[in-house]
């Protein structure tokens, strides 16, 4: 028996990111007890943690992170510089905020900014997803 790692052994980064996402999901769920909208990012974070742990759903997790970061960035920009949008400003920021929460909220943004580069082809997480059976 070889003692080299199994081809589909979880990389340390997967374990770390999955743990961070899961812990964030728990934290958000605790906040959700007080303000139920926080259950939404909690659910998304938990889903992302499970997908990452199992190495499935590469496309889904990639787009969750992309939408999360995009909506978060747009939200900040609209609130900061969006007075020119007039009456529509808060409608736009509202949609961005909802989109951001649906995709994991600010904690997903925090971890996602580190996860996203690793999801590019050739990087560790990309390989991890690629090793798993479809």
């Amino acid at each position: 028996m070889s003692d080299s790692p199994m081809p589909n052994a979880r990389p340390a980064s997967v374990k770390v990111y999955a743990a961070l996402l899961a812990a964030s999901a728990v934290f958000m769920a605790l906040l959700g007890w007080s303000a139920s909208a926080y259950y939404v990012p909690a659910g998304c974070l938990l889903l992302a943690a499970l997908l990452l742990w199992s190495g499935r759903g590469y496309g889904l997790i990639k787009w969750i992170v992309i939408v999360n970061l995009a909506t978060g960035l747009l939200l900040v920009l609209v609130l900061w510089l969006g007075d020119g949008l007039g009456e529509r400003k808060l409608d736009v920021s509202g949609v961005m905020l909802l989109g951001n929460l649906l995709c994991g909220g600010p904690l997903m943004g925090l971890w996602g900014s580190a996860i996203l580069p690793s999801l590019r082809p050739g990087r560790r997480l990309f390989q991890w997803f690629g090793q798993q059976p479809a």
């Binding site: 906040l31 007080s34 303000a35 139920s36 909208a37 939200l75 609130l79 808060l90 409608d91 920021s93 509202g94 905020l97 909802l98």
Partner: peptide
């Protein structure tokens, strides 16, 4: 964020959606 949350709430009159979002709840 408060003005944005209030705008989101206004899309659903009388539902006080704001309470489900606001961090004052914790």
């Amino acid at each position: 964020l408060f003005p944005t949350l209030l705008r989101i709430s206004s899309w659903f009159p009388d539902q006080v959606l704001l309470l489900n979002f606001s961090h004052h709840r914790f």
